[in-house]
Write a protein that binds this DNA or RNA. Structure first.
Length: 471
DNA sequence: TAGCTCGTTGGACAA
DNA sequence: TTTGTCCAACGAGCT
C-alpha cells in the first residue's frame, strides 16, 4: 500500500529548500499539495489588495511548477481544519506536513489544528522554514525576548552557520485519486479595478522570479548595498521583500547565496544585507512574543499619546494616501507605492515620520494603508516599522528624531531623480531644488499642491505633544 | 547586584 | 560649506 501525505502550502510557496515538502517525501510515497484560502483565520488582518494580487500569481506559478513535476496544486476555500479533513478523506492521505508561521493568531490556529488532526489519528509534522531562528531560540540569558536589536544581532551572528541546502524535487508522485479543487481564479484575488495592472511591469511573483531576483542581487548589487541602499533613485536594494514574505525564497537560501558569493565576513555589503534579514527575524520574534503589537504600542504610555481625531485628520490622511501632501519626497513615495505596490525603505521611513509626527495621525492608520497597498505586506515587519518610526516600538527612535523630508530628499535624492520620476509636475525644477515645497503661486502654475503643513511648525507640535505625554 | 554604556537609519543651531 | 554639540532621559543589556 502506498502512503500519501498532504503538504499544506502557506507562506512557503516554493519547491526548493522546503522542509515540509522534504519531510513528506522522505516518509511517504505520494504528496498532495494543498493551498487553503481561509480568511476567517486572518481575522482583522486579512490580506490586502496588493498582496492578494501577488498571491494570485504566485499560486499560478506554484501550480505550474508542480504540474511540470507530475503533480498539481489543490486549491480550497474554507475553514482550514475542515478542508484538511476533507482532502485527507478524498485522497486517502494519513499525514499532514507544513512549515510554521509565526503570527500569533495563526500560531493558535495551527496548534489547534495539529491537536484535532492527531485526535483523528493522522500524522502531523511542522517544520521551520520562514526564519533562520525560531522565536524561542534567540533569547536573553534570563530567558526573555530581546527588545533591543543590537544585542539580538550580536547573538544571531555568534550562532549563525550557513544552513544546509535541500534539493529541489524533480518529480512528485501523484496520489491514486486527486481531491476536488477550485481554480485559482475562483479565489478572486485579483482586484476588480485595474489598479494593479502596472504591477506586472515591476514584479515577477513566484519561485522562479524570486530565484532570479536573488541571483541578480547577489551578483550585481549586494557588493554596493551598504553604500547605495539609501538612495531611492538608484536600484541599490534587493527587492526581495515580497518573495521572502510568501516564502518563494527562504531566508536560508538568501544566507546561503551570500555565503557562496564570497566568504561572508569579508563583504561589507553582504553583512549589511544579512543585518536586514536579521531585522526581519527580530520583527517576527517580537510579534510572536508580544501578540498585541499589531494593534497596540509596545510602549504602553503611548496609549495616551494626543493623536489628532479622525474627523480632524481625514483630509490630511487622504492627501497622504494619494500623494498630494505638497511635500515632494513624501508624495513621490506614496505614488510609487500606489503605482508599483512597493516603496523604497528610506522613503517608507520618511512618509511614516511625516504621517505620525508632522500630521499627528496615529501610526495604525499608516500601517493599515501600507497593509492594503504593499505587495510585501507582512504583519511583523509592517508593525515593527511603524512602531519604530512613531517612537513607541522596540528600539524606537528618540522622540526628537523627526525626519525632515526636504533634508532627506537633498541628502538621499540629491539630483531629484526619484521625485522627478513620480511627481512629473515638478520635473522642470532643477537639481535638489525639487525637494522644496511650492508657494501658492508656483503651486497653481504647475498643478502641484502647496504643502498641507509647515514642516517647522508641525515638527514643534509633535515635540510638544511628546512633552505633554511625559508630564 | 550595582553600575555602566549604549541605543539602525536625525535635525537645528552655532561656530 | 562643513563640523561639532546638543536635544532627554530611560531601560535594556552587559560586566
Amino acid at each position: 500500500m502506498t502512503a500519501t501525505a498532504i503538504v499544506w502550502f502557506r507562506r512557503d510557496l516554493r519547491l526548493a529548500d522546503n522542509p515540509a515538502l522534504d519531510a513528506a517525501r522522505r516518509k511517504h510515497d505520494c504528496v498532495v499539495p494543498v493551498y487553503i484560502d481561509d480568511p476567517e483565520a486572518e481575522g482583522d488582518w486579512a490580506r490586502g489588495g496588493a498582496s492578494r494580487w501577488w498571491l494570485h500569481h504566485s499560486l499560478l506559478e506554484l501550480d505550474r511548477r508542480l504540474r511540470d513535476r507530475g503533480s498539481r496544486l489543490i486549491v480550497a476555500r474554507g475553514d482550514s481544519l475542515e478542508v484538511l479533513r476533507r482532502v485527507s478523506r478524498a485522497s486517502g492521505a494519513r499525514a499532514v506536513f507544513w512549515n510554521r508561521v509565526y503570527e500569533p493568531r495563526l500560531v493558535e490556529r495551527d496548534r489547534s489544528i495539529k491537536r484535532s488532526l492527531r485526535d483523528d489519528g493522522l500524522e502531523v509534522e511542522s517544520s521551520q522554514a520562514g526564519l533562520l531562528f525560531e522565536p524561542w531560540q534567540l533569547l536573553k540569558d534570563d530567558g526573555s525576548p530581546y527588545r533591543v536589536f543590537t544585542p539580538f544581532w550580536k547573538q544571531m551572528q555568534q550562532r549563525w552557520t550557513p544552513p544546509a541546502a535541500s534539493p529541489e524535487p524533480r518529480r512528485l508522485a501523484a496520489p491514486k485519486r486527486w481531491p476536488a479543487s477550485l481554480e485559482i481564479d475562483e479565489l478572486h484575488y485579483l482586484p476588480r479595478l485595474d489598479w494593479a495592472d502596472g504591477f506586472s511591469d515591476c514584479w515577477a511573483p513566484g519561485e522562479a522570479g524570486g530565484r532570479r531576483q536573488l541571483q541578480s542581487f547577489v551578483n550585481e548589487t549586494v557588493g554596493t548595498y551598504d553604500s547605495r541602499r539609501d538612495f531611492p533613485g538608484t536600484a541599490g536594494t534587493s527587492r526581495l521583500s515580497a518573495h521572502l514574505h510568501f516564502g518563494e525564497v527562504s531566508p536560508a537560501q538568501v544566507a546561503r547565496s551570500l555565503d557562496e558569493a564570497g566568504e561572508l565576513p569579508a563583504g561589507k555589503g553582504r553583512w549589511s544585507f544579512l543585518r536586514e534579514i536579521a531585522w526581519r527575524e527580530f520583527s517576527a520574534h517580537l510579534l510572536f512574543h508580544y501578540p498585541h503589537l499589531s494593534d497596540a504600542p509596545l510602549n504602553p504610555s503611548f496609549n495616551e499619546f494626543p493623536w489628532r481625531r479622525p474627523r480632524d485628520y481625514a483630509d490630511d490622511l487622504r492627501a497622504w494616501q494619494t500623494g498630494r501632501t505638497g511635500i515632494p519626497l513624501v508624495d513621490a513615495g506614496m505614488r510609487e507605492l500606489w503605482a508599483t505596490g512597493w516603496m523604497h525603505n528610506r522613503v517608507r521611513m520618511v512618509v511614516a515620520s511625516f504621517l505620525t509626527k508632522n500630521l499627528l495621525i496615529p501610526w495604525q492608520e499608516g500601517a493599515r494603508w501600507f497593509w492594503d497597498t504593499l505587495v510585501d505586506a507582512d504583519l511583523a515587519n509592517n508593525t515593527q516599522g511603524w512602531q519604530w518610526t512613531a517612537g513607541c516600538g522596540a528600539d524606537a527612535a528618540p522622540y526628537f528624531r523627526v525626519f525632515n523630508p526636504v533634508l532627506q530628499g537633498e541628502k538621499f535624492d540629491p539630483d531629484g531623480d526619484y521625485v522627478r520620476r513620480w511627481c512629473p509636475e515638478l520635473a522642470a525644477r532643477k537639481g535638489r531644488r525639487i525637494h522644496q515645497p511650492l508657494d501658492e503661486h508656483q503651486s497653481k502654475r504647475v498643478g502641484y499642491p502647496a504643502p498641507r503643513v509647515d514642516l517647522k511648525v508641525s515638527r514643534q507640535r509633535a515635540l510638544d505633544a511628546w512633552q505633554r505625554l511625559r508630564s
